[in-house]
Design a protein around this nucleic acid. Structure first.
Lengths: 114, 114
DNA sequence: CCGAACAGCAACCAGTTGGTTGCCTTTTAT
DNA sequence: ATAAAAGGCAACCAACTGGTTGCTGTTCGG
């Protein structure tokens, strides 16, 4: 059915968005800072960065759109924290791509040994 | 030492390049086609793509520069095949990021904050 | 209450990306 | 020997990205 095809294409697009979000050095640096699982304010994430606060804000928005990060407003601060599920999904996808051939072989073998 | 810091930054840049290369829907589609571990010619990869051959060529070059794909000229054909090590390295990095505060991250953070 | 800290919005800019088309070279097949 | 298949190269284009600056609004601390 074409419904299935569309859903896989959507999944594809989401994955591409996740990888694209990860495909920037400064965003990876932000993720490393968020790796302590604590919410960080934008100013905090900007400190020591040689970049403007707005630049960091834009990067955070990219990460948020990809679902890699989630934000919560607390008082005058906007706190961001790491969201692991999409990252894990992307990781699983990479395993699939690099193992496709092996999987096919394994399935074949299992079928033959039945 | 700042030599170590530079090396982690280089690793960072390489990873960003890999993720950036993966961050495009049509490139992911190419990778899926290459998932059978067999070398494919550019024309073959273009077939059924609604895209021009040159567009596919550009995408392949992006993947090649990231080390995800390797090409070999055979006669008049240019054959591309999947190269798994960088993909696996990227996957491992994602596991590190999503894992709770493991020591790889701790070391990375220490170096970046120095 | 008032200044400073935190942040959003908009405009703008240069460089990169993703794609096209046109033309040329090399290799294969008949 | 020659036409078709495979692909490289260059120019060009629109759209997106990553970054800046300037200004405004809100919330906290003294």
């Amino acid at each position: 059915m074409s419904g299935k095809r569309r859903s896989t294409q959507n999944a594809m697009r989401e994955r591409a968005a996740i990888f694209a979000a990860l495909g920037d050095e400064t965003r990876l640096a932000v993720l490393v800072k968020l790796g302590d699982r604590q919410p960080h304010s934008i100013s905090r994430l900007t400190a020591g960065t040689r970049m403007s606060r707005q630049a960091v804000t834009k990067h955070l928005r990219v990460l948020a759109r990809a679902g890699i990060v989630r934000n919560v407003h607390l008082g005058r601060e906007n706190l961001f924290k790491l969201e692991t599920p999409p990252i894990e999904s992307a990781r699983d996808y990479l395993t699939d791509v690099s193992r496709q051939w092996d999987d096919t072989l394994a399935r074949l073998k299992a079928h033959l040994e039945k």
